[in-house]
């Protein structure tokens, strides 16, 4: 039984089929990549998993429990956490309080220590007392990761965490992901930075026009003709 199981999820916006029957598994202790061109339906799938978007059809389960009809905050209690492609920090709180709110919501015991540890871990300790709304995108993305981790999740959904990060921050993120999965966390990673994806993912799904067109190890995906076509638009 996988940590996260998605079965035949379909989302239709009026005439647009944003997600057209997707099956996807995420294992604990692994980073699973979800890549695909713009508009492929990656964020929509994240919204379905986190409960912000009701699917037209299909089912989502965590640890074998069907959570398709639960509200977002119930899903969080089940160990789901996510970041947002368009940042959703609590802009008028400090960086520290952003992370603290999350830790408090998870009713952790040692809140101050946890907050400090997480800020340290993602490398934003020096920004702890800054107002979150004033951060540059790169740091803000890292704070969102720290905030998501503060809920003590089993499954972390990252929506383009490396966009806006410089090269060294990006490397650091890769290391961070490795550390996290070593601790048993399952990660679902949406990312356009291919070198990062290929480096950290244990397996990769490729989404195009709402359909999974390929699934496999990074080596496999890199040489899949269908994937190349989806990305480059050229006939194989």
């Amino acid at each position: 039984m996988a940590l996260l199981e998605i079965r035949e999820v379909m989302v239709r916006f009026g005439g647009v089929m944003a997600v057209g029957g997707v099956d996807l598994d995420v294992q604990a202790g692994e980073t699973t990549g979800l890549i695909g061109p713009n508009g492929a339906g990656k964020t929509t799938l994240f919204n379905v998993i986190s409960g912000m978007q009701d699917p037209t059809a299909g089912m989502v389960s965590v640890n074998g429990v069907d959570i398709s009809h639960e509200s977002p905050h119930r899903r969080a209690k089940r160990g789901l956490a996510r970041t947002f492609q368009r940042l959703e920090l609590f802009a008028s709180l400090t960086v520290r309080d952003n992370v603290r709110v999350a830790a408090e919501l998870a009713s952790l015991t040692n809140i101050d220590a946890t907050v400090n540890r997480l800020l340290e871990k993602v490398g934003v300790s020096h920004l702890a007392d800054k107002t979150a709304g004033e951060l540059p995108t790169g740091s803000a993305r890292l704070v969102e990761i720290a905030r998501a981790l503060a809920t003590g999740p089993q499954l972390l959904l990252l929506d383009e965490p490396a966009s806006g990060l410089d090269e060294s921050e990006s490397d650091r993120l890769g290391t961070l992901l490795r550390e996290l999965t070593e601790d048993g966390l399952g990660v679902l990673l949406v990312e356009h930075d291919m070198s990062l994806v290929m480096r950290v993912c244990d397996s990769i799904y490729v989404l195009d026009l709402g359909m999974i067109i390929a699934h496999g190890t990074p080596e496999h995906i890199q040489h899949d003709p269908q994937v190349l076509q989806a990305y480059l638009g050229a006939p194989s």
């Binding site: 986190s50 409960g51 912000m52 509200s71 977002p72 905050h73 899903r75 969080a76 209690k77 789901l80 956490a81 996510r82 947002f84 959703e88 920090l89 609590f90 802009a91 008028s92 709180l93 309080d97 603290r100 709110v101 999350a102 408090e104 919501l105 998870a106 905030r147 998501a148 503060a150 809920t151």
Partner: peptide, 24 residues
Amino acid sequence: SRLGRRLIALKDSPVAAATLGMNL
């Protein structure tokens, strides 16, 4: 206080608050 931070979080980003486990 704890509740105060939650109120601000609710204003600043209801979606983030909900996905972090807040009962809005």
